[in-house]
Amino acid sequence: MHIVVPIKQVPETSNVKMDPVTGTMIRAGVGTVVNPLDLFAIETAVRLKEAHGGRITTLTMGPRGADKALREAMAMGCDDGVLVSDRAFAGSDSWATSYTLSQAIRKLGEFDLIVAGERATDGDTGQVGPGIAAWLDLPLATYVAAIPRVEPARGLTVERLVEEGYQVLDLPLPALITVVKEVAAPRLPTLRGKKRAKAAEITLFTAADLDLEPSYLGLKGSPTKVVKVATPRVTRGGTLVRAPDEDAVADAVEALLAFLDARDLLPTGGRA
């Protein structure tokens, strides 16, 4: 199987700064990691490769330094890394990102499966996976928690973790899935993997290398525009009651019940 894993490089800390003018993230001076939720996608692909053979291409759209993320994925077992990078792509929203990535994936040639993360921890939209599926007209399953059946070149059975339970879907291949944590616990990179990844050749796709509609790219090609960014209040100015002993616990619980009652948060029967 040829499996494609799109991953995103995201700021390491949760302490991200925003540019008040453009409303985009200031990336300078912040460490980066592979989007933690993409590790489940990488692990899924590596396990499928181990069970059924084939190769894995991981790709990311980002600044030139994003090859670091690709190398991390390669240290976990991905074979090839593709960096999609060009100034023209800067400021892309999920519409433009999924367009650019889908054109890059077309250029990779034949593939059987795309495994994406559920969402990226910075943009936090979860829209790029379904977006790529739409551009490439691929059968789609999101929130995949298990893959009980794999028939290479033919199809998959997946279980999606949704509100009501695990929805079971049969998909023909090629297809696109997005995965959640339950699908597989990510492995740590091996020393050998790290060495190989460090020395690996990364393929670079710039705008000129891809067949792209210029008006679909970057900030200009993005239908959504960020108009304002605000920092929400973190504390709610709530009540904090200390309950060091049993009497204090009884008082604290009494106060809590009164508080919940006032907000109409207790079952109604009790008030009769």
Partner: peptide
């Protein structure tokens, strides 16, 4: 912003060339 909405809307937004804001 359910498992259904968060899957369907980005798919439709791409095909309709529309902007979509999540959550």
């Amino acid at each position: 912003a359910t498992s259904t909405g968060r899957t369907l809307m980005p798919h439709v937004a791409v095909r309709s060339h529309a902007g979509l804001t999540a959550d």
